[in-house]
């Protein structure tokens, strides 16, 4: 059996993208790290006393302070002359990162701490039972953005966290998806080779919150990318330097949406077509903005399959 630094036996749901994401990140980083984590699914399913899935040093404090706790860890390593001992990785869910923890994250970026911050983006507050966050996509049905007679679900667009990180002058920013494990790991390794603050946002499907088949986690994650809804790219020193191309023509968003109960209301009642169209527009704009469409569609598609 392969040796992991994020151990099996935790209590995540079957098909949980976040558990997979955390394992990929920690394994890629190796044993010489100190990790922090915000309150959320990851913390709850990995660290219930007297067990812990973390074979690396790990500290969970609160929902909104993972970045500040990590800042303290990094400052302590510096002050004690122990910098060579460990790299610091701060982690949080989309809520702990983009909403309640944004201020601490901004402070961490601004002060230039040598920390890799990883946001596991499952697009809602899953730990508390699926409420919307600033990273919940448009049209998604959550417990606080429910669809109803006069509602089509979440009314707001996904907050552009990488752009917020870029505005802080963060030297390395990347998006990734558990659909492409090698890519996640390569980005973690690259990030850790750079001094200063780094931000990686990993798309991690949540079968429970997305009401998708746990067996299809990877397929769903892949479709988010292939439709253009979750662009995968790297930004170095403020400019997009690398983009994961998607096969031409891009898949229609309906292929992605229809696999998930959180979008089911868009297809059930009359009038949902307009909303689906808006979501298609979001994908089209991403495709344009990041230049997602590949020239040699088939080849890239084959390569992606190999991963």
């Amino acid at each position: 059996m392969e040796k992991h630094l994020f151990l099996a036996g935790h209590t995540a749901c079957y098909g949980c993208g976040e558990a997979l994401g955390a394992r990929l990140v920690v394994d890629a980083a190796g044993p010489n790290i100190i990790t922090t984590d915000a309150t959320g699914c990851l913390e709850v399913f990995s660290s219930r006393w007297p067990q812990s899935a973390w074979a690396v040093p790990f500290v969970h404090s609160l929902f909104e302070n993972s970045a500040a706790v990590a800042s303290g860890v990094e400052a302590a390593l510096k002050a004690l002359g122990r910098q060579v001992e460990a790299k610091v990785i701060a982690q949080g869910g989309d809520g702990g990162t983009a909403d309640i923890g944004l201020q601490c994250l901004s402070g961490m970026f601004e002060r230039g701490h040598d920390i890799l911050y990883v946001c596991y983006d499952n697009e809602a507050y899953m730990n508390t039972g699926v409420q919307r966050s600033g990273l919940t996509p448009y049209g998604s049905n959550t417990c606080t953005s429910p669809s109803g007679k006069v509602s089509w679900g979440n009314r707001y667009l996904k907050k552009d966290m990488p752009a917020i990180a870029a505005a802080h002058g963060v030297p390395y920013i990347a998006t990734a998806s558990v659909a492409y494990p090698k890519d996640v790991q390569a980005k973690v390794k690259k990030a850790l080779s750079i001094t200063g603050p780094k931000y990686i946002q990993v798309h991690v499907p949540c079968p429970l919150g997305w009401k998708s088949d746990p067996a299809l986690t990877i397929k769903v994650a892949k479709l988010a990318v292939e439709t253009g809804l979750y662009p995968i790219y790297e930004m170095e020193n403020g400019v997009v330097t690398k983009v994961r191309k998607i096969p031409r023509p891009a898949k229609p968003v309906t292929e992605y949406l229809k696999l998930q109960g959180r979008f089911a209301h868009l297809f059930k009642k009359g009038g949902g077509e307009g909303e689906v169209k808006k979501i298609q527009q979001i994908a089209d704009e991403n495709i344009k903005k990041y230049g997602l469409l590949s020239e040699a569609a088939a080849k890239v598609a084959v390569e992606a399959e190999k991963e």
């Binding site: 500040a68 706790v69 860890v73 302590a76 002050a79 201020q103 901004s106 402070g107």
Partner: peptide
């Protein structure tokens, strides 16, 4: 000779000393 972290709030100040103390520093 100390790391003086210029935090963005008291909430962060307390969180920073928490992290630093957990790493073995006097804070």
């Amino acid at each position: 000779k100390a790391e003086y972290v210029t935090v963005e709030s008291e909430f962060a100040a307390a969180s920073v000393v928490l992290g630093a103390s957990a790493t073995g520093a006097r804070t």
